[in-house]
Simulated assay, not measured.
Amino acid sequence: MSEPDRPRSREDYARGLPDHHDPTAGIGGARPARSALTLRAVLAGFGLVFCLLAGLGWLAVADLPTWPGIVLLVLAVVAAVDLVVVLRRKARGEPG
C-alpha cells in the first residue's frame, strides 16, 4: 500500500487512516476512539512549569543536596520536548 505524497489534512484524519481497524466500531453505537492530544498538552505544560519551578526552588536552597533539583530540571526538559511534539501533531491537523 502506498502512502500519499501530500501531507495529511484534517479530513484525512476524520475519515480514518489507511489500514486502521477499530475492533469496537459499531458496537453499541460507540464513536471511534480519538487521541487525547489536548489533555496531553495540558499535562505536559503543567509538568514543565511545576518541574522547572520546583527544580529552581530546590537549587536555590543552599543546604539541600543538588541531585533532586537536577532530576526535576531534567524532567522539565522531557516535558518541554513532549509539549513540542504534541503541539506539532495538533498543528498538523490530528484530532484530539
Rank of each mutant, 00 (worst) to 15 (best):
G93F: 05
L64P: 01
P18T: 07
D22P: 01
R92W: 14
V84I: 06
S9F: 05
S2F: 09
V49K: 06
R34T: 11
L59C: 08
D19W: 15
V84H: 01
L43D: 02
L87V: 04
W67I: 07
R6C: 07
S2W: 07
R8C: 10
P4V: 05
V84S: 00
F46H: 14
L73W: 02
L17V: 14
G26P: 03
A44H: 02
G29D: 00
E3Q: 14
D82K: 06
L39Y: 12
V77L: 11
L17Q: 12
R6H: 13
G28V: 00
D5T: 14
A80L: 06
L75W: 02
A54L: 15
A76T: 04
W58M: 14
H20T: 08
R88S: 09
A62S: 15
R34F: 09
G45T: 00
R88G: 09
F46D: 10
A91R: 08
P23L: 01
S9L: 07
L39D: 15
D5V: 06
F46T: 06
D19K: 13
L53W: 12
A44T: 00
L59D: 12
L56A: 08
G93N: 05
R88Q: 12
P65E: 04
R40L: 14
L39W: 11
A14D: 14
L75P: 03
P23A: 01
V42R: 10
L64H: 05
D5M: 10
A41D: 03
G96N: 12
A79Q: 02
